[in-house]
Design a protein around this nucleic acid. Structure first.
Lengths: 344, 344
DNA sequence: GCGATCTCTGTAATCGATTACATGGATGGT
DNA sequence: ACCATCCATGTAATCGATTACAGAGATCGC
């Protein structure tokens, strides 16, 4: 049903070349074991028939796969993750692996991912989500696949994360605003409980404390990294009696919606209010005004995470690969643009 | 190497339940053939051991796969395609299939996709690219997999496309500007040769002609659907001696960059100039001014394309499924926002 | 009471590759 | 001339499931 036309098998090639199937197999995977002339004859037949090994059969016998599953939350900031996936894809391709994207959302869906992981199809696992598929007591980790987390930390032993130094990046956001002369900051956070959010929150609080500012200098409002949360955050901000002049948003998407909303209400950015975003997506350079933000090395985060998994699959030991640490941290970069200025 | 821990096999379950492997297999895939008591005993053992069938082995024997490959150009408008992929994913999941995303870019990469297609892993193929992987005389279609194109038309017999009615949508763009009173239009196109571009261009030219406007009423500039092309298009526009008051951009991304650039040069939108985009991505509602655009039913396009493939895999005949036509067309919707107004 | 029929379960072939082991022919040393 | 060695290739077991076919009991009709 699936195949319209019957594909050639190894036996067909063997017959055409007048050799055994073992010889065909060797011609493809261990050519040095064959006489040059035999090998040439086999390759000729391979070409004529257009033969490609059935990797399902190969995988069943050899027990190893070329497929790596990347778990991506379904609603996950496409402009950001597309670049991370690009880095993953390029790195896996170089190492001979193929990327499978698995979108995670509901319980049913997650069960499917768990089954895929335990199905024998996969060589390894990457996750960009801190929450892993876990249904009815079964976890995706039960499959025992080598795994790496990218831009997320599921906090599972043996599942090393490759992360941005969120604490340091958040400090940079605060210090930038303080350097400009702002003394009170409104923080539109990410989702409560989210790992990145927790770290960034810590960086902000630390930086405020180090600057000698009291608790009332920081006004927090819970957000969720999406447009609608940016709008809601802006409305909350506009409702404040005594508005801080500095605003830090959990990511660029919510920052862009925040700015749009306060401007509609007549608030000038950066005149009345300076806004700093997080992520460094391309749109942040085309909104009005262009957004000061933290650029994450998105491609590099993906590439480093994929490289770590590839090394793990090649038999590397985690402690060696991470130099004894339990995670890999990369640095963000502050991009100063038009949404921040000294307060009036 | 891949598996850290040995996963239970069907034989282990059979032993634990005191039955044969055939009985275990039947308990899972044809429970009605078993006595209730036997089935219960087997399921008990399955649960205790945490057994999941190895689908590589199943696939080898049964010859059918649950995996569908979606080919996505690597640099492809993430805010747009993420929603299309969402529609595909939901639909495939409902039908019991798993989505694999294959990013297409270079020649090497494409060879990998071709090999994946001929490897026996896949049930079917979806493409969101008009150009299909084709390396050294081998095409990805050689695998003989059922395939459907979404938002693209490779113009290959037997590969039905599910598309937006680009011609009609482009007419809507023109008619909107003409209705407002604009008489000359600057068109920042998509990449030359691109299928969508060809259709939209036709719609624009037709609409202008139908309105009785001459050839000099349309000024065309080649674009490429990305930010940088929008900036370049804006510079070209600014350099014109006699600037049209209406602008149509190939997509939202380039429209947003276009607007940003002309505004930096002091041109007022929509005061001096009205701009219409294409796609209806979320950002179009958060830029300054909000962008009048054509909303594509992105989720629905993905879902319809996936549904068509699922029906094809179930043995449906193409002519029946398409009602005798050779393609499936969906309609765009004009979203009138703040970037368009009557000319001064 | 005995064969026919039906229900349930087991035996073994099969999917398409990989690979340990066997084999046969060539080479070479004594 | 004979045996050891080596190289190239073939034979057949194997991976883990599915399923056609066979066989063993149970049920039933006459």
């Amino acid at each position: 049903m699936n195949q319209i036309r019957r594909l050639p098998r190894i036996g067909d090639v063997a017959e055409a070349a007048g050799v055994s199937v073992a010889t065909v197999s060797r011609a493809l995977s261990a050519p040095e074991k064959l006489r040059e002339e035999t090998r040439a004859r086999v390759m000729e037949a391979v070409k004529t028939l257009g033969y490609t090994p059935n990797s399902v059969a190969r995988q069943l016998r050899a027990g190893n796969s070329q497929l790596v599953l990347v778990i991506v939350p379904r609603r996950s900031n496409p402009p950001f993750f597309s670049e991370v996936l690009h880095g993953i894809d390029v790195t896996l391709a170089e190492a001979g692996y193929v990327l499978i994207t698995g979108y995670m959302e509901g319980v049913d869906r997650d069960l499917r991912l768990i089954e895929l992981a335990t199905s024998g199809h996969l060589a390894g696992l990457l996750t960009t989500s801190g929450q892993l598929p876990q249904v009815a007591g079964r976890s995706i980790l039960d499959a025992g696949l080598p795994a790496v987390a990218i831009c997320a930390d599921p906090q599972v032993p043996g599942l090393p994360p490759v992360l941005l130094d969120d604490v340091g990046a958040a400090r940079m956001q605060v210090e930038h605003l303080l350097d400009l002369g702002h003394r009170r900051i409104f923080y539109l956070s990410g989702p409560t409980g989210n790992y990145n959010e927790t770290m960034r929150h810590r960086g902000i609080v630390d930086a405020m404390r180090d600057a000698g500012l009291g608790e009332d200098a920081l006004v927090e409002h819970p957000g969720d990294y999406v447009f609608s949360g940016g709008v809601a955050g802006a409305k909350a901000y506009l409702g404040l009696a005594d508005r801080p002049t500095g605003v830090i948003c959990g990511n660029d998407e919510s920052a862009i919606a925040f700015v749009k909303t306060v401007r509609s209400a007549g608030v000038k950015v950066p005149g009345d209010l300076s806004v700093v975003g997080f992520d460094g997506i391309e749109f942040a350079d085309y909104c009005e005004p262009t957004l000061t933000t933290i650029a994450q090395p998105r491609f590099e985060l993906g590439a480093a995470g994929a490289k770590l998994l590839v090394d793990l699959l090649a038999g590397g030991r985690l402690t060696d690969l991470l130099g004894g640490r339990d995670r890999m941290l990369m640095q963000g970069r502050l991009l100063v643009r038009d949404s921040t200025a000294a307060p009036r």
